[in-house]
Amino acid sequence: MTALITTPELQQHLSAWLRDLGSVRRLAPKTLEAYQRDLSQFLTFLSGHTGGLVGLKTLGELRAADIRAFFSERRAGDVGSRSLARSLSAIRSFFGYLERHGIARTEALNAIRTPKQSRGLPKALTILEARSAITATDELEDTPWIAARDMAVISLLYGAGLRISEALALTRLDLEAETLRVTGKGGKTRMVPLIPQVRQAIGTYLDLCPMHLSPSEPIFRGKKGGPLSPRLIQLRLAQLRGALGLPPSATPHALRHSFATHLLGRGGDLRAIQELLGHASLSTTQIYTAVDTERLLDAYRAAHPRA
Score class of each variant (00 low, 15 high):
E166G: 01
T114L: 08
A108C: 03
L270T: 05
Y97L: 05
R119I: 08
R301G: 04
C209K: 10
D269P: 06
Q12Y: 06
D78L: 09
T251I: 02
H212P: 00
F94G: 02
R236A: 10
G80K: 00
T171Y: 00
G186P: 05
I233K: 09
G60I: 03
T50R: 15
A90P: 11
I146F: 12
E129I: 07
R113I: 02
S216M: 11
A148H: 10
I112V: 11
T285H: 01
R26E: 01
L175V: 02
S15T: 14
G159W: 11
A90W: 09
L246Y: 12
G242R: 15
P215W: 04
T106G: 08
I91C: 03
G278E: 14
S155K: 06
S47L: 12
V79Q: 08
H212L: 13
R25A: 03
I233G: 03
Y288C: 10
T135W: 08
D292G: 01
L128T: 13
A299G: 12
F45Y: 11
H262M: 06
L157A: 06
A250S: 08
L46E: 01
T58G: 00
R119F: 03
S118F: 07
A148V: 13
D174W: 01
A299K: 08
G51H: 07
F42T: 10
A238C: 03
Q197K: 14
R231L: 12
R236K: 15
T285G: 03
Y97M: 03
L264P: 00
G278S: 13
L32V: 10
A148R: 14
T114H: 12
R131E: 15
G96S: 11
A254K: 03
A69Q: 09
L282K: 10
S83I: 04
R63L: 11
T6P: 02
A243G: 11
H101K: 12
A108Y: 01
L46T: 04
W145T: 07
G278Y: 07
T179A: 10
I134L: 14
A238I: 07
A307C: 10
L244F: 05
Q200Y: 06
S283P: 05
E178D: 15
Q239M: 14
E176H: 15
E99A: 15
